[in-house]
Amino acid sequence: MGRVRYSCCNGMNDQTWIQQALALFRKDILAETRTRVAFGAMGVFSFASLLLIALAMVGLKGVLIQNSSGQAVPAWNNSGKMSLLWVLLCFAAFAGLSHSFVYEEETGTASTLKLHMGPQAVYAGKLLFNTTVLLAVSLVITPMYMVMTGMDAGTLPMFFAVMLSGTASLSAVATVVAALAARARSTGALFGAVGLPMLTVLLVLIMNAARQCYIRSESAVQYLRPLTGIVCFGVLIVTLSAMLFHYIWED
């Protein structure tokens, strides 16, 4: 190419995986602002589910039931509402988070990426992107849900901690399952069916933590213990996924 001189040289080849992951993240965000497939699918999906839940539970408004200690409590209470919010977010995650992997596989850009960057960087970039999208969706959906169902936030710091750690762990599980499912031909059906059983455990933990938002407690341990469970789950999933990602991504 003698005649054309580019502003680069071969010494600039060693990009760290963090820089590569950030470049991939920026690329995905840019593509997402163009197409809005992931955000749109998850947004519409969760808004429709939100309506369905609110409508299905209208009949429960004002109904009292007896709890295990014999007191009359509202049937449609805050912890019930919070649990259903998480079911909703869980389904929303499975409506949209497979897009970024499936898209790369289907359009043939996956091989181009394989040439240019290592598997760890791809995993980090995609995890960052999926977490961002899911956080954005829950940031929009949660206030809407609170308004429509009349859910209280309870203890605010605990509420935010649960939302943040729950969303991050949720996207960690969804990301690795999406990468697995994207390698199969019938991705769509597989993604939900393979991912949801893994999420059931996380959902049990999150619902348990969410209940703590509405229990007045003096000691911080009462709040920290359920949160630790969620954070550990997410950290373990991310660690194992990062270690095993090249087996999923490469041929």
Binding site: F233, Y247, I248
Partner: peptide
């Protein structure tokens, strides 16, 4: 891929046995 899934699903199953 099924080996990868089996290993990752260890985390939920450990939680099922000890935490849940």
């Amino acid at each position: 891929l099924s080996a990868v899934y089996a290993i990752i699903a260890v985390i939920p199953s450990i939680y099922l046995i000890w935490v849940v």
